[in-house]
Design a protein around this nucleic acid. Structure first.
Lengths: 193, 193
DNA sequence: AAATATGCGGACTGTTGGTCCGGTTGTCTC
DNA sequence: GAGACAACCGGACCAACAGTCCGCATATTT
């Protein structure tokens, strides 16, 4: 479960990584996204500031790592799992299942999403995670609508997964409203009624 | 053309506002969006830092003002101009014309858009400019597709107007590719083929 | 020309992301 | 278990930034 970048990662290093990730999570939950300064993270995790940077490179890297942890499961399921998430199901069903999964993650991590979006200055589209989602969506669109620009449609759908938009379109009584809206939109694009 | 917040605005104040706006513009053009620090803006405009803040409140306000200046013309044309931009044309035509106009502005101000997006922490959806575009789009969608959530569709289309996305989907030889993609997508949503 | 309010400047503050290096501690070998 | 080695750690440090403040200047009005 814990990934290791060299052959074996030192025990204290692994422990610290966990501590930092947990601290980030807690700060994110209790204050807004801009409440997560790296000073605070380090302090709450009980490590030095240098440690945080050595592990995660910079603020964006830290948030990205957290985001990746939250979405790894879905990624595996989409790549190698059983239908309808995994390969084998028809495109519309597969897309609905995928958007349901991604939507759930996004809805549960809106503040993390916002923070990451703000920190991730320039290379959002180079992020491996983003590329994976994009590639998947583009393939599904290309399958159903060869007449449209599948690449662009995929970017368009992913652009919806923004923390602020989620908060703004989620009524207090229906936490999954956003996901259904995205699904509806995607189906309108995929199907030629 | 220059707006005045009290009955009459002092001449030097107006001059300074122009200078600050111009300086921002220049810095934005020559360096990236994060190259525009308010220190630098003030220095280049030849005014004190306090002046910038008194005029524009904060960084987000400054960028917002610039953005608004660039889009005021389109706003007027949409509200009171002749068809197909203004009222009177059928919804699809009107939407195409509108997206053409907004796309042109966005393509010409991608870095400004990025900078504004990053600075505008929380209240993107409260911005009067955003509300205007959103209201317009939502009305057009509601007209053509009463079966879908027009409000959400409008947000979705506006989410595309992001500096990074524009840069990422604009090939070097075709500066208007982005706009056409957006139009294509919007038509796919509006029409029930 | 005097009075008044409006605007001005830039020193100042608190916080941030990010760097750096002397010292520490895990791990591996013998 | 002892020693050697590399990996890792902490937190002092730095530059840059957004935003505040207040004594001074200047446009406008009477």
């Amino acid at each position: 479960m814990t990934e290791q970048r060299t052959r074996t990662e030192r025990a204290d290093a692994a422990r610290n990584r966990r501590a930092v990730l947990c601290a980030t999570e807690r700060l994110l939950a209790e204050g807004g996204g801009d409440h997560v300064s790296l000073d605070r993270v380090a302090a709450l995790a009980g490590v030095g500031k240098g440690t945080v940077f050595r592990r995660f490179g910079n603020r964006a890297g830290l948030l990205q790592a957290l985001l990746e942890e939250r979405s790894r499961e879905l990624r595996d399921a989409v790549g190698n799992g059983p239908p309808p998430l995994g390969p084998g199901a028809p495109a519309p069903e597969r897309m609905l299942a995928f958007l349901d999964g991604l939507g759930a993650i996004a809805e549960g991590n809106a503040t993390l999403l916002s923070a990451h979006g703000q920190a991730c200055a320039e290379d959002r589209y180079g992020d491996p995670s983003y590329r994976f989602w994009h590639h998947h969506l583009a393939a599904l669109f290309a399958d159903g609508r060869p007449d449209l620009d599948a690449d662009f449609l995929a970017h368009a759908v992913l652009a919806l997964f923004d923390g602020d938009l989620i908060r703004h379109t989620t009524p207090p009584d229906d936490p999954r409203h956003f996901t259904r809206s995205v699904q509806e939109l995607a189906m309108a694009l995929l199907r030629r009624d």
